[in-house]
Amino acid sequence: MKIKTSEFVISAVGPKQYPEDGFPEVALAGRSNVGKSSLINRLLLRKNLARTSSQPGKTQQLNYYRINDELFFVDVPGYGYARVSKTEREAWGKMIENYLRNREPLRLVILLVDLRHPPTALDVSMYEWLSHYDIPICVVGTKADKLSKNQLPKHAKQVRETLGMPKGQPLVLFSSETGMGRDELWSIIEQAAELTANSPQEPQNDPQESEDTE
């Protein structure tokens, strides 16, 4: 994917605020601190378009990013952060469920899990929920650079088995630090969104991303 333009559009809290451009949408979901903002920045070759935070769970809206006037990334609030009140979690849950189940332009949900550890119970619940409603999923194992090459197959197998992923469903091993998995993930996104494939644009200098907490 050749990135010509990318911009933050809106932090939406309900359907009335969702963009009406009609572009396909790709949502990014995962627990707080799994690396969603860093992944967005690496995919778009931008250092700080999606801002990282020192406060896990800070993202409380659906953050829309428009790419090349043909696609939206939608950053979904992270789950699993204890300091967020039960009332807030319930409100976010309803907003997220409504979006994921009813948003017509949604073409794919990228579910991020930390490759270093087994998926959490919340990761499993999210995966099973998406699967139950036949929402297209691509699982991404983040922070792959923190593991050795010899460790990667074992941890990938662990993710597949814990989530109960069927054979053939994509699992992308990704690193926001090195760019590992970027081209593969863009290929999956382009196919899901039915975009014309382009060769990925190479950065002049690799952006150095900080650990994401969203």
Rank of each mutant, 00 (worst) to 15 (best):
K2H: 10
T5D: 12
E7A: 13
S11Y: 12
G14I: 08
G22H: 09
F23M: 07
V26H: 07
V26S: 03
V34K: 09
N41E: 03
R46M: 06
K47P: 00
N48W: 04
A50D: 04
R51C: 00
T52N: 08
T59R: 05
Q60C: 11
N63S: 06
E70T: 00
Y79K: 01
W92K: 11
K94M: 13
I96M: 09
Y99H: 04
N102R: 12
P105T: 07
R107A: 13
V109I: 07
I110P: 02
R116F: 13
V124S: 04
M126N: 07
Y127G: 07
S131M: 03
I135E: 03
P136W: 03
I137P: 00
G141Y: 06
K143Y: 09
K146N: 02
L147V: 12
Q151N: 04
P153M: 03
A156V: 12
A156E: 15
T162V: 10
T162C: 07
M165Y: 00
K167E: 13
Q169E: 12
Q169P: 01
L171M: 10
V172R: 02
L173K: 12
S175W: 08
M180T: 09
D183E: 15
E190G: 13
A192I: 01
A192K: 09
T196F: 12
Q201R: 13
P203F: 07
P203Y: 08
Q208I: 14
E209N: 15
E211T: 14
